[in-house]
Nucleic acid binder design. Structure first.
Lengths: 190, 190
DNA sequence: GGCAGTAGGTTACCAACGGTAGGTTACCGG
DNA sequence: CCGGTAACCTACCGTTGGTAACCTACTGCC
């Protein structure tokens, strides 16, 4: 087995247990046993427990980004693009439930490797901002950045809400996002 | 010193140290020393480390809710109410930076006392939904719930963004929230 | 005053975990 | 056949979350 395959295997196991049991509740020993290796190997590959979490988060984030990025190229109008982006997001966290769950663990890193994750976040935000520039031209860069953050946060939370309401389809969630962020609540005002 | 005062004192210390060092990076021993007591007292009051975090989160959340709730009664029109709600939120996490920072630690609990925190969250969401009913009448309850989640998530993330961009005033952040959630992005379309 | 009961507090300990040092096996080029 | 190295393991350490057992000072009561 090559080194890259080993790493993927380790990340698969880590993703599974972090998602189901939570970061604090699982020991490195347990992960190692599940992989079929011993603890020091994990440290060889990832340096620390937080490093392992960081690696799984980075991978999950990349997968999510690729999925939504691809989708946002579909559709003609700005409205269509936005809708398809949302749809891809909610479909992703239905299909890759585990990968998505570890993304929620991110705040754990606040006190630790927060700096390292900043780069990936920055990169992701930049991409959304780029699409924003297409969506809503002639706005200050700073506002576009804010809008991107707003949308990411909203999606995250709505996805969490969907976990408690599993009968909400990705289509419905995407439509709800459109209601608020595209048309705006004023459209429904009294 | 009464029991309630002791508890408040412990929560103050916990809030400070969780916010600055992060949940995982701080030991119960350290907190106990800072309070001026010994470790078992913390366990007497909060049962476990996670229980202590849960208590600080619960308190912070209540303070935040009270602040925003009060503000949302100001203003005449629906638009005004929404704006003042946002403004109060961003002013709160500027003034009570520490309290707000522990709220971010919440996902740590995913694998643990997630059930207990569900009640508080539910209660908070219900209140926003109630204001939503006023804001955008004649929508299905289910959509209102989704809108509430969207708004909470968006605010959370934008507040996080503000921490990295400290020159963004609460007024500007509130305006950006209005741009997206009230007028909607379509208002700026090409 | 003397004394049982209890609230509030401590010391001393345990088990589990993150992390590491040092040794062992297995494979490779020469 | 052999030196070197990559992959891997066993055995250990320090710290930390959590607990048991004990102490102390106050309260109300005879």
């Amino acid at each position: 087995m090559t080194r890259a395959e080993r790493e993927r295997q380790m990340l698969d196991v880590a993703e599974e247990v972090f998602a189901t049991q939570g970061y604090g509740a699982v020991s490195m020993e347990e992960i190692a046993v599940r992989v079929g290796l011993s603890k020091p190997m994990l440290y060889e590959y990832f340096g620390s427990k937080e490093g392992l979490l960081l690696a799984t988060i980075t991978r999950a984030r990349r997968e999510l980004r690729e999925a939504t990025e691809r989708a946002a190229t579909e559709g003609e109008t700005a409205e269509d693009k936005l809708y398809h982006g949302y749809l891809a997001y909610f479909r992703f966290n239905e299909a890759h439930r585990r990968a998505w769950l570890v993304l929620l663990q991110e705040p754990v890193l606040l006190g630790g490797a927060a700096g390292e994750i900043e780069a990936t976040r920055r990169q992701q935000t930049d991409l959304i901002v780029a699409q924003m520039e297409w969506l809503v031209p002639d706005r200050p860069r700073r506002d576009l950045e804010a809008y991107a953050e707003i949308i990411v946060g909203a999606c995250e939370r709505l996805a969490l809400w969907r976990m408690r309401n599993p009968d909400v389809t990705p289509e419905e969630a995407a439509r709800q996002m459109m209601d608020v962020t595209w048309k705006g609540l004023s459209a429904y005002g009294a």
